[in-house]
């Protein structure tokens, strides 16, 4: 059931990221549905599941983008694992504010690393893109918060956070 749900979201994220959300750009920047999901999932999944989830989501994202294939596979794996660790040790309860902050921070980290490996010719253009994406991803995470929370609590009902 869990795997099916993750797979459905992955499929939808892959489809929507390359179609609908390219038309919903904010200042030329589109959101990253993959980061939003792996960060949110980190509040509910186990460490092992986080590793697999991050790896698969990151790898599929790499295939879609077609550049530096494998880079986001390992980055997302590491990110999802760290969200689980921080949830276990620092923040034990999830809410919309925490979701926004976590999504924003991880967007900055992951896209910052992507910028280093990407075709960035100057620091300011990259910072501008990252800042817009931080707010776009964060806002979208908050919008999706209730729906995702409901689904995740049903899937992981004994580990409500």
């Amino acid at each position: 059931m869990r795997v099916t749900y993750h797979a459905v979201y992955l499929f939808l994220a892959a489809m929507l990221s390359t179609t609908l959300f390219t038309a919903l750009k904010l200042f030329g920047v589109s959101p990253n549905l993959f980061i939003i999901y792996i960060v949110f999932a980190g509040f509910y999944v186990s460490k092992t599941e986080a590793i697999w989830l991050g790896l698969v989501f990151g790898f599929v994202y790499d295939i879609i983008v077609g550049a530096n294939v494998g880079l986001n596979g390992v980055l997302y794996m590491f990110a999802c694992f760290l969200v689980v660790v921080s949830c276990e040790n620092v923040i034990r309860r999830n809410n919309a504010v925490v979701t926004f902050i976590f999504t924003a921070v991880w967007t900055a980290v992951l896209e910052g690393i992507n910028a280093i490996f990407g075709p960035v010719s100057g620091v300011w253009p990259a910072i501008r893109i990252i800042i817009v994406e931080i707010f776009y991803n964060g806002a979208l995470a908050v919008i999706l918060y209730l729906a995702l929370k409901r689904i995740f609590e049903r899937l992981y009902d004994n580990e409500k956070r």
Binding site: K47, I51, N68, V69, L71, G73, L75, F78, L82, F117
Partner: peptide
Amino acid sequence: IFVLLLTITISVSVVLGVIN
């Protein structure tokens, strides 16, 4: 696990950067 993942992430990132 953290140290292992960190090592894998850094190694793979560098290797992929060169390969790609």
